[in-house]
């Protein structure tokens, strides 16, 4: 067996590659955080739709979740990036395609819409874990349906589902790597770019792996703090 490969780990910090990696990490964090905001808001809304008493609203919520979960994320991203502008008609499409950093915005929106469907499922599961008695108790105090969700059920369900939401928050950073396929210069893209210039892709991707690992550990730590802060009194902790 021939083993003629010479390792050169300096591609991780040597000029200009070190800066490429840092810039990539910054884009990964930006896209992940902004998409997370969309995913949370939309996911909570759709998850709530799925348990309302109005049949058409339930159908809408279910249709959204099924549609976004059953199509690979890369296909969704391609659809939004290449076909998305065309949906607005020929004239507007040209203007949209001229927007600088279009792939950045498409990545955020696409990732947000996709993750929202996953968040919605957790929100629904959270609602399902709240007992009937609690709904009845809230309604008996004279609150309306909307007030019930706004002040009691949603805050309660959100605390219950913090652990699965942690997993989703981790997944959003991992999934942001798919945006390299529409040319977004995030962390994975940069490690691939280093390979294209230096042929030391192995070191670059290995380095990127550990950066993702570190990012993941930070998220777990951060969510652990949130979980502790918003723990429901009297519930058995993990």
């Amino acid at each position: 067996m021939r083993f003629a490969y010479e390792f050169d780990w300096s591609v991780l910090w040597r000029h200009p590659y070190g800066i490429w990696i840092l810039k990539g990490l910054l884009v990964t964090i930006e896209v992940g955080l902004l998409a997370w905001i969309i995913a949370l808001i939309l996911g909570i809304f759709i998850g709530t739709l799925r348990i309302t008493t109005w049949r058409w609203m339930r159908f809408l919520g279910t249709a959204y979740v099924e549609l976004f979960r059953n199509i690979p994320f890369i296909v969704q991203l391609f659809f939004w990036f290449y076909a998305g502008p065309m949906l607005f008609g020929e004239k507007l499409a040209h203007q949209i395609n001229r927007i600088p950093d279009l792939n950045f915005y498409v990545a955020i929106i696409g990732l947000g819409l996709y993750t929202a469907s996953r968040v919605a499922e957790h929100v629904r599961a959270g609602f399902a874990s709240i007992s009937r008695d609690q709904y009845q108790a809230v309604l008996s105090t004279g609150m309306t349906q909307v007030q019930m969700y706004r002040y009691v059920i949603i805050p309660y369900a959100l605390r219950i589902i913090i652990p699965p939401l942690t997993t989703e928050f981790l997944t959003i950073f991992k999934n942001s790597s798919v945006a390299m396929t529409i040319g977004l210069a995030e962390l994975t893209f940069q490690s691939y770019r280093i390979d294209a210039v230096t042929f030391h892709g192995l070191e670059a991707t290995t380095g990127a792996m550990f950066i993702y690992l570190f990012l993941g550990l930070s998220v777990v730590k951060f969510m652990g703090l949130i979980e502790k802060k918003y723990k429901i009194k009297g519930m058995v902790g993990r």
Binding site: N175, T188, L202, T205, M209
Partner: peptide, 17 residues
């Protein structure tokens, strides 16, 4: 904890070695 794309790239780089 790491993205699948990165795993795909990693093996793509390591296999020829």
């Amino acid at each position: 904890n790491i993205p699948l794309i990165l795993v795909i790239f990693w093996f793509y780089f390591v296999m020829p070695i």
